[in-house]
Design a binder for these strands. Sequence first.
RNA 1: GCUGUUGUAGCUCAGGGGUAGAGCACCUCAUUGGUAAUGAGGAGGUCGGGAGUUCAAAUCUCCCCAACAGCACCA
Length: 663
Amino acid sequence: MANATSPQLQLEFPDSTVREFEPGTSGADIAAGISRSLAKKSVAYVLNGDLKDLSEPILNSGTIEIVTREDERALELIRHDCAHVLAEAVQALWPDTKVTIGPVIENGFYYDFDRDQPFTPEDLATIEKKMAQIIQQNEPFAKEVWSREKAKEYFAAQGESYKVELVDMIPEGEDVKVYRQGEWLDLCRGPHMPSTGLVGRAFKLMNVAGAYWRGDSDNQMLSRIYGTAWADEKQLKNYLHMLEEAQKRDHRKLGREMDLFHFQEEGPGVVFWHAKGWKVFQNLVNYMRRRIDEHGYDEVNAPQILDKALWQMSGHWDWYRENMFTTVTEDDREFAIKPMNCPGHVQIFKNGLRSYRELPVKMAEFGNVHRYEPSGALHGLMRVRGFTQDDAHVFCTPEQLEAECLRINDLILTTYSDFDFGDIVVKLSTRPEKRVGSDEGWDRAESIMQSVLNKIEADSDGRIKTELNPGEGAFYGPKFEYVLRDAIGRDWQCGTTQVDFALPERFGAFYIDQNSDKQEPVMVHRAICGSMERFIGILIEHFAGHLPLWLSPVQAVVATITSEADPFGEKVAEALRDAGLNVETDFRNEKINYKVREHSLAKVPAIIAVGAREAEEGTVSIRRLGSKHQTSMSLEEAVASLVEEAVPPDVRRKRDAKKAAES
RNA sequence: GCUGUUGUAGCUCAGGGGUAGAGCACCUCAUUGGUAAUGAGGAGGUCGGGAGUUCAAAUCUCCCCAACAGCACCA
């Protein structure tokens, strides 16, 4: 068709100029046509939003942009190329290693290998050296399109059974592509940069780990090597520095330094809360109590241990047995320690007769639950075997469901904002394969929740991102998951709203409607912090230990400079305590430098130093955590400002609203 | 649970087949000092637990436990 009348490509450049090209022109040709320096610097191009190999011929019109190595979009190419170089290096060093996949991930990449002898951390340096050699050789990445048969034959002959499996997974109609780099090649959909040399030197292999083939624990465990790669060494250095900083705010480390809690061998996954940590815990519980009170919940408390029969009825005995702590008494009666609060709450709902007039019934509990989590899952406060859920169950009519979901969303989002969390993702998880209830029921619930999800996003001013998690719902109903991101960039699911079809029916819970008929209520499970333990862990990391004054276990330390000032120091402490603040005194025979250092390390928000001068003038010198400066003010001023700052955000919000209404 | 690594004083860590060492913290004494470590002295562990090899084990081997990094699972 390429003749004199064949249509030219219309390509629009970033500066909005449109130019015509012969179909089949490559990105490299275009870059070369613009300037020699661009041709040299370019590593790929973007056509209509898709990243392409520089050598890829252009067949369609559209917007085009040449991507240089410095471009942010080149970063994923650098990382992906680096993964290929890693794989080549590994096979050069250990030829009997089989390759699998090596994708780009946040901040880097990994590659999974199958090898009898897993890699050791010492191997990483060897591999890095080999990688540097490969990069030095600067072989071009050459794309080839193979037939399915050829690819399978080739990889089978190489003994690369995983690659054969991967070829089979490529959808019909899609090209089977391999990228060659010198002698070595890999099945890959691309794109890549023009040559291995462009990977550069700003890469580092981070660690080795086991990982299951295709993410399934029934499959073979592979040996995974994680790496990071950046455009230049400065970026790499920054990233490594960021990791170090993140480690400093690890809640396990801060928990010890701040004397909040500890773990020990005899109690894997259960927390020993120290006095200060428990104070934080109580401050958090008190906050949540005020919030749920404001939202019309009733707090209840259901038993820790219940007969197996109840858990059989709830379905937990079938679905959740391996995660439950159980105990058999002398008289051979079997009990389970509750892993969830819902069955208990249903019992409370069922006790007595419920009228439609009572609905929605909102039952809350700071429920202490125990779950036998896999040992490898345990992680500080973030993942424990005994924890406290800020749990609640809303029993309502189907008509009330949407409004209740929105009400819960409001409670969750205001709570997160009170704790200064901005990065929130709400995910809607829909019906899983293994499930109870009719498809019509799921249709109805999912459509209600989808509309709630849309409202959540629309009302958030872009603060909330929403996602769909198909097939990830609970077996008894769809759910929303509220996910926060921690200091190290890990995501933690905290809040959740789950619609339950199964439990009311299983327990035969009902209410009496307008016509004196029995009706099954809809049950909504919801948690906001999720686990108080985890939430505190996230708070510690989020604030790097600098908890807001209202949450802080010790809000101020009064430290005297000389013992002469002790009586005045006592007076200051008393005044602060009388005003409701949590205050400690430090009258030890130590220098003020020593005291300041110690309390700063313990993350005390305010150090109030008093010496002879303050005692005489009736003033105090306040040094706030994180600041190197101190301000001097009268004792009265100090008390008033600290008291004001220590007002919890919800109390402040209510107070301000009241004030605004009055004026 | 799976793969790998680690486990020595409260903390951070050194050592390593012949019965343990540092710094900080702790205790005592001296020092009363202006905002991130005053000085001196003292006490403290049998080296995660168990078994084995050995004349001798904290050190080597095996089993178990726990922690850490991932994976899988999950609030």
